[in-house]
Amino acid sequence: MLKVENISAGYGKIEVIQDINIEVEEGEMVALVGANGAGKSTLINTVSGILKPTKGNIVFMGENIIGHEPHDIVNKGLIQIPEGRQLFGDMTVEENLLMGATSPEGKKFKDETLEYVYNLFPRLLERKRQISKTLSGGEQQMIAVGRALMLKPKLLICDEISLGLAPIVVADMFNIISGLNKEGLTILLIEQNVKRSLAISKRAYVIENGKIVLHGLSNDIKDDPYIKQAYLGL
């Protein structure tokens, strides 16, 4: 579904990521893990068209999307939940969700998806008239996930959705994501929370200093001695 081939990108003259290769098959949940500053966000911004790569190809659903504008890529069904939630703080919960239904695909299924999202997060239904910035961090993250679902994603990229949440909320969030995947949604998980993301994903890539240093089945990576020592603290 998504194929990132030999992508290099960066800011100005500084190359942050080099020769990255990543593949996500339909229906899969793939994790991309790495520490702060490893290049995860740079890679994701390149995939969603915000950043222009210096070389390489990105193929989504059989089409090269290099050079496409971000809104164009969103309309193709490659949706990103941006890091730090990025809600429309002064709008209500429901308004935020409805803002998601702007893509052609999202518009078509607006009412159905809204109901689906409220089923997924009953909490949001209770608070649909509340101004979104007054909600708790976990609830705000639910809005961000819901808003992305309103766009009817084919591939959902979750950028650090556990960031700044209480441990119990993190567990909930990962359960939800895992559930979405079981329903057939393809997901690319970008995470610092290595342990949890390895636990729920099928395959994983480990990124360090802008390069993929390891990839394979999440189960194998979990047991890799280097990963154990460097990321899991075992």
């Binding site: 969603s48 915000i50 504008e69 971000p70 809104h71 969103v74 309309n75 949706i79 990103q80 939940i81 941006p82 990025q86 809600l87 429309f88 703080g89 002064d90 709008m91 803002m99 998601g100 702007t102 893509s103 808003r147 992305a148 766009l151």
Partner: peptide, 22 residues
Amino acid sequence: GFYFLAIRENEEAAESIGINTY
């Protein structure tokens, strides 16, 4: 008008939901 508001409120978010902010 709705899109204008979205851009004012949070341009990054507007971009992430596929609004052509330009």
